[in-house]
């Protein structure tokens, strides 16, 4: 019970953030269109507007990646994987998450911590004149991405363990 609830909570956090940021796809397309029309139609342009596209773009893939992982949308070389039993697949997912996902995300958090804190301390702004003063928000996406991925990783391991237990129970 506890296991299932934990997994559900982890997945929920990832899916809620994904369902919010995915709309940035639409807004970034509209913003790009507006930038082009203003520039070529009206000879107008703002660096901040141009930069906002960058931000929307980064938000989408950094905060959606974990949910996509949960939905199994990330490419696998599944030549063998797809022929394996659910039990074998569960082992691959437990192994990969512990050996690859967790170390990678923990390293990202570890190495980016002071980098991001420094940016917050300064409330770092754009290097461009007239750009968005939100570089610290952009940089925060790096640890945020890693944390979400780890949450999803926890859910994956728990679900895989559950399915292993279930198959063992059924077998005995």
């Amino acid at each position: 019970m506890v296991v299932a609830t934990t997994a559900t909570i982890c997945e929920k956090v990832c899916s809620v953030s994904a369902k919010i940021v995915c709309w940035a796809v639409l807004t970034m397309a509209l913003t790009t269109f507006v930038v082009v029309v203003l520039r070529y139609g009206f000879n107008l342009g703002w660096v901040a507007l141009q930069e906002s596209i960058q931000y929307q773009h980064a938000f989408v893939f950094m905060l959606f990646a974990a949910h996509a992982l949960g939905q199994d949308e990330h490419v696998r070389v599944d030549i063998f994987y797809r022929h394996w039993s659910g039990k074998q697949q569960a082992w691959v997912n437990i192994f990969g998450t512990i050996a690859f996902l967790f170390p990678v995300c923990m390293s990202i958090v570890f190495y980016s911590w002071s980098y991001v804190l420094e940016s917050w301390r300064l409330l770092e702004g754009s290097k461009e004149a007239g750009g968005l003063p939100l570089v610290f928000v952009m940089k925060s996406l790096i640890p945020a991405f890693a944390v979400l991925m780890m949450l999803q990783g926890i859910a994956i391991v728990l679900r895989a363990m559950q399915s292993l237990l279930n198959t063992t129970e059924r077998a005995t």
Binding site: L69, H74, T97, S107
Partner: peptide
């Protein structure tokens, strides 16, 4: 070939 998502295998194995 294990079939774990490519991106994470790439990063994880490199780190190891």
């Amino acid at each position: 070939l294990l079939g774990y998502p490519v991106a994470l295998t790439l990063a994880g194995l490199s780190l190891i």
